[in-house]
């Protein structure tokens, strides 16, 4: 088992390396570098930047030197100092801007995973054990709808209807009175009261997919000999379904979390833009539109790396849950 985890962690290293190269590529793609933008921006406002400061920044980020030197400096700054570079639009270090946002993104994604899981587990089990029943058809149909409706559209519809029906906008994660308040019990409750909306919206597509997967897996398992053995032992039907076929069908299900996670993170970014949530989405979009590349690149880097770690965790969890993998 330990060996398996080590193996997986080792496999992760080239992936993370690849991601960092890719993100650095994105940072470098637009013509010019952030310093030119920065200087231009400040000059436009009638301010001048001291030569010394420019020189200092140039040195710090290796500007003007070959790309691999710049890449190396960027990585070195991140790893040793947690310094992701500077955002010229905010005129702040990137690290000051991203961590809150990343935390909210991860919180929402994580809760969505839990939501997707629980809902899909119960509906999928129902659809499989009641194959070709009305409930099964409804679940299948909603499954398809859930897959076909992009979640930003759901968010838009929700915005529109809550505006029409209640005259209020469900956007954001906090009510105005808690927006800038320090953390308290009240603020947490307020957060939870707002949080379910993006979770449901984000979770719809994932749930639809997960129901389909679980239903198909469970249908494969329901008639396996070991289920009949358990039935022949006199195990009550309800216990039997959960304990035997569902237990086995869960394995591919857990492993799919690995690849639903990237989708959920993707979805959360675009839904956040629509619902104006204080997560990665709006800031990343703003950064990209203004070509504030250090900020954007860092976001993409962190989100991707955290996704890879999440995938790793789900794989390890799967391995631990399945005795066949645990013991091999």
């Amino acid at each position: 088992m330990i060996q398996y985890i080590l193996h997986r962690v080792l496999l992760m290293i080239p992936t993370v390396f690849g991601i960092s190269i890719l993100c650095f590529g994105i940072i470098q793609l637009p013509p010019g570098d952030f310093l030119t933008f920065y200087v231009a921006e400040l000059s436009a406002q009638g301010e001048s930047v001291p030569e010394a400061q420019i020189a200092q920044l140039e040195r710090q980020y290796g500007l003007g030197r070959p790309w691999y030197v710049q890449y190396f400096l960027w990585m070195k700054n991140i790893i040793t100092k947690g310094d992701f570079g500077r955002s010229f639009t905010w005129n702040k270090p990137v690290s000051d801007l991203i961590w809150d946002r990343i935390a909210f993104t991860m919180l929402i994604t994580l809760l969505t995973v839990v939501f997707v899981w629980i809902v899909a587990l119960f509906i999928g089990k129902y659809a499989a054990t009641h194959q070709y029943s009305l409930g099964d058809y409804i679940a299948t149909f909603f499954g398809f709808i859930g897959l076909a409706v992009p979640n930003f559209l759901l968010a838009l519809l929700l915005l529109y209807y809550s505006l029409q029906l209640f005259g209020l906008s469900p956007a954001g994660l906090f009510s105005p009175e808690y927006q800038d308040a320090p953390w308290s019990v009240g603020k947490w409750i307020d957060l939870l009261a707002h949080l379910w909306i993006p979770i449901v919206i984000l979770g719809t597509a994932g749930t639809a997919g997960a129901i389909r997967i679980l239903r198909a897996n469970l249908l494969d398992e329901l008639h396996k000999p070991y289920v009949i053995t358990a039935r022949a032992k006199g195990v009550p039907e309800r216990t039997l379904i959960w304990r035997y076929p569902v237990r086995v069908a869960l394995n591919p299900f857990i492993s799919t979390v690995g690849w639903t996670l990237p989708d959920l993170v993707s979805g959360s970014i675009i839904v956040s833009v629509v619902l104006n949530l204080p997560t990665t989405g709006p800031l990343l979009l703003g950064a990209l539109l203004q070509q504030d590349m250090f900020l954007a690149g860092s976001f993409i880097l962190l989100v991707s790396v955290l996704t890879v770690i999440g995938t790793l965790i789900s794989d390890v969890l799967l391995a631990w849950l399945d005795p066949r993998i645990r013991f091999s």
Partner: peptide
């Protein structure tokens, strides 16, 4: 595996913004 592990939207966003 590498490409599947990366969330697609941020990557697409980054590339098309560039």
């Amino acid at each position: 595996e590498f490409f599947r592990a990366v969330p697609s939207i941020p990557l697409w966003m980054g590339l098309s913004a560039a």
